[in-house]
Design a protein around this nucleic acid. Sequence first.
DNA 1: GTCTATAGAATGATAGAC
DNA 2: GTCTATCATTCTATAGAC
Lengths: 228, 228
Amino acid sequence: MGLGIKKRTIVERLTAESSMNSGGVVRNLADLFNRRIESPSIRRILLAAVDSFSKTGFHAASTRDIARKAKLSPAAVYVHFHSKEELLYTVVTLMSEWVFDQVSAAARERGRPAERLRRVVQVHVASHAAMRTAMFVSNFEFHSLNAAQRKKILRYRDAIEKLFEDCIRAGCEDGSFHAADIGITKVAVVSLCVSVLNWFSPGGRLSPEQVGDYYADLVLSMLRADPT
Amino acid sequence: MGLGIKKRTIVERLTAESSMNSGGVVRNLADLFNRRIESPSIRRILLAAVDSFSKTGFHAASTRDIARKAKLSPAAVYVHFHSKEELLYTVVTLMSEWVFDQVSAAARERGRPAERLRRVVQVHVASHAAMRTAMFVSNFEFHSLNAAQRKKILRYRDAIEKLFEDCIRAGCEDGSFHAADIGITKVAVVSLCVSVLNWFSPGGRLSPEQVGDYYADLVLSMLRADPT
DNA sequence: GTCTATAGAATGATAGAC
DNA sequence: GTCTATCATTCTATAGAC
């Protein structure tokens, strides 16, 4: 026993969303981490990591800084995480799973293609805007993960793209949408939604939900959807 | 003489585009650098910097690596640049100026709002796709610049946004476009164009110009432009 | 699980010869 | 302008006490 047994990663010990103090929508990042991570120290480390990574980028962020923000010594971080890279991987996994769950739930509800695509775009954009800082890290520090980690995260991204594609394809087939090239249109729509990260500000004129609604209008126009 | 005189930066010694071996469109990154930088060593350093910054990000890229790619010793880099940061600033300045010139020329040509916006979107997207690697650095390592540098680069970005806004506003005023909120629509359109950096591949099915055309169609649909 | 102390490696930048 | 050699700093990660 013990020989060759590596310490398990945090990602492997994440709590299933439903089993904790859930009931209702996730209100913010701290709330999301509360639901999925039991240890308060680990939660503090992850919140500090999101803050540092978002402000300076992964490579410029130091584990000393993260430890200080989490009110721990630099060494304490390594009791919970094997490496700085695993810190990033944990953040990106948590956020990718969460966004996938949100969009997936929106896509499951029935309706005409225009109604379904509207919900998918609205939820995707609103999720990115509401969790702007952490989603920023999840998207723009993705390339700092190693190949195996990127591969796992790409499964979530691909699944989300597939949900968009299914809606777009259904609309093109029943004649309610018009797109010359579904593949390019799909990546354009998804990247448009993600690009809300580049300008959204929590103190701004519009709430995440309002921005989501506006983007849904833009996307339906883009597909020249029949007026409903 | 000499007291308090700081070495001039490369950006301050850039050659005006027209005065060198120009005549015709810029073909690629090496061509662009040839037109604006006289010293072959500095050109090699900048090409190496673009390569390193794009592969690992600014902070993870080492000056040793950049020097090696440029076939120089680590110390030689500092004969031409004060710091690693100035290397990045030079790259971002060159690319921001170039894109502004491209879009600006497209916006100067006369025409109805739909024709002008089509050209602006087409050129903006095609420029980003054609110079993907360097534009990637220019956009996604922008936050590693210092405050003064960011401020200077923002002048180009703001000017480009203004060109988009003018086209959109003109179309809304003559009734050929429909947008509920010009401000949000503008940032959505510009960030859609930039987001081509996230998926475009030089070896792919479509050329930069073809992607530009497709995006122009998408944007005009988005604005529910009258069929021309 | 948390701490203090530090090992070990890499980095940005400089000094000074040619 | 380019080189070799190196300084001074910073960083990730670990050792070992409690």
